[in-house]
Design a protein around this nucleic acid. Structure first.
Lengths: 355, 355
DNA sequence: TTGTATGCGTTATCAC
DNA sequence: GTGATAACGCATACAA
């Protein structure tokens, strides 16, 4: 049917604005790129044309031409919770400063992750991945940085410090006179939990004590309650619980209290992460705070450098964690029970007496 | 310098695998696309070539060719907290099911958002944006769906129900015999808070009561503590506090309790969002749960349809919220104080006596 | 079933 | 200063 025009407006391209402005596409490209060589008068013409045509450059075309995506990939496990949000904020913020976009994908199973990574690699310059117990990323075509996981052949790793803090935390419990500590968490899933257990073991060894085997628990609240029930029923015995993260610590502790046990008098409980709830609950949960946001930022940073030719760092970068002593470990509660959060950045530690 | 080769390996392209497999690029493209027409023997050849060359397609080139990014954009404000993580999970998961990648950008100021949106629009097919009090997105070249905000000319909106739930919650407080309710939250920032105040007002009107003006507070914990101090000092008076979100509700309530007031006997406190802390704190915080994850999923869904030619929906889609009655409102605490979270999806409401 | 040729919208290298 | 024009890596209509 002659004369029938395509009705779907295809959007302005560099060609249409060039035509509208009466210049070549090269010139348009120059003003878009902010090149200083173009004369003021033509620049104005071009700008006007772009505006009237509502011109929007094609990122794909640009990427193809410059052979670079200018975007970072971020692979996260499905778990929600504040941890991931913070990590994303740190990562995205730093990436943005570096003029990089960020593409995120959430994957759970190893299979999902592998597939996700391959697809992602198609549209980014590099990939940051939370947790290393993940893809066998041999021959990964793009730079990879692993967050909170172990270093791997083709990748670089950044993580929050675990072993030392776990050791300190365990010692703290031991110093409180506890003799039967239990470690709650599955050490075969994630490297960071494994490292926390290492610290747990190390502290025992240092005193010629024999550490208990870890009790595998999912990092979900209901799992924590389950453990508490086993303790209440006498199936499990302990006078101190070292929990792999705050969620289960909170769940266990609360259920224990509901079940009539006195925390921390009968059983001390400590966690990991310092989630918001930990400072609101009574007794306040003793835990460890990780520099999560900074972790994301550093990952974005390293990734950017790798993409731009930097060499892989042989050993992973460790960011310091910080013990947050409250009262679930046996320390006396502060007299005024200040529930208001301390300003972040200030030390919240207030070790007392013991240790 | 003749004979000097470029040492940086440029990565395999469709051309190199075609050559290696002894076929044309069209054929390679076909097997990559999973076309069924190609013979089994050649497919194997191509697959082998791809594998040995470690071929990774260029997403940019593909996007350019098909004139589509197959990517959804998501614009978030900087605030962290579980809300955003959940939203992201819902959005990404649904997008993935639709074969779409997702690019996220975090922006705070209006200026940031405007800039971010324009840059984003360059690499995605459509944009979802949390909150509408944002960009004047006139002539936005790509489809936009607004999450938890008001509908706008060029966009579609999805949101959790606010007014009705806020009305109910207010009525609940009124039914408890409270006569001096205060609304805590800045209604000039976000549409959803505005709507909650509307419900607050509506409930008052229905009883010929005159609602108090909203007390502007930032949604940060320290701000909540500040309000509590004003109440403790007598600067502010109330027997019930309707807080714009759980963070400030928690902060206010805790500080109030530390200051010696009996919550809820002296002052009732309710919040919004049902964060984890709300079910751990004592008294349990009465609040409202929004289908955040679903909100993200619906946004991704609608965006996808808009991108593929669907018409804008004139009125926004409202997802139902749910009252979560605990005891900070004045209701008696459950006898067993079950802190374990109810399975999500089950009704957690247990209204009693009153209303 | 497979190959050829063209277009997708930029950037960048040359000339002019 | 500005304008041709060749990549960039893929999809696809059309031939064969």
């Amino acid at each position: 049917m002659p004369g029938t025009e395509d009705t779907t407006p295809r959007g302005a391209t560099i060609y249409s604005v060039a035509a509208a402005a009466g210049v070549s596409i090269a010139t348009v490209s120059r003003v878009v790129a902010g090149s200083t060589v173009v004369s003021e008068t033509t620049r104005t013409k071009v700008l006007a044309a772009m505006d009237s045509l509502d011109y929007l450059p094609s990122g794909a075309a640009r990427s193809l031409a410059v052979r670079q995506h200018d975007t970072h990939g971020l692979v996260l496990p499905e778990l929600n919770g504040p941890y991931y949000a913070e990590l994303l904020v740190g990562f995205e913020t730093r990436a943005a400063q570096l003029q990089q976009s960020v593409m995120v994908v959430i994957a759970n199973s190893k299979a999902d992750r592998a597939a996700a990574v391959r697809k992602l690699a198609t549209r980014v310059d590099g990939i940051a991945m939370l947790g290393s117990d993940s893809v066998h990323l041999a021959r990964s075509p793009k730079p990879v940085v692993i967050i909170a996981g172990e270093t791997q052949p083709g990748a670089e790793a950044v993580a929050a410090e675990n072993v030392e803090s776990a050791t300190k935390l365990t010692e703290h419990l031991l110093n409180h006179g506890r003799t039967n500590l239990l470690f709650l968490g599955a050490i075969d899933r994630a490297a960071d939990v494994r490292e926390r257990y290492q610290g747990f073991v190390a502290a025992h060894m240092a005193r010629d004590l024999v550490p208990a085997q870890p009790v595998a628990v999912e990092f979900r609240e209901h799992a924590g309650a389950g453990i508490a029930d086993r303790i209440l029923s006498g199936d499990l015995t302990a006078d101190a619980l070292f929990c792999g993260n705050d969620e289960i610590a909170l769940a266990v502790m609360t259920r224990l209290i509901d079940g009539g046990v006195d925390v921390p008098a009968d059983i001390a409980v400590v966690g990991w992460d310092d989630v918001m709830t930990s400072r609101y609950v009574r007794p306040g949960l003793t835990t460890v705070r990780q520099p999560v946001q900074q972790l994301g930022a550093v990952a974005a940073d390293r990734l950017h450098e790798l993409v731009h030719g930097a060499n892989f760092r042989l050993e992973r970068q460790i960011l310091p964690s910080e013990l947050v002593i409250r009262s679930s470990c046996g320390c006396p509660p502060p007299h005024s029970q200040p529930a208001t959060p301390a300003k972040v950045g200030q030390h919240q530690n207030r070790p007392r007496g013991i240790r």
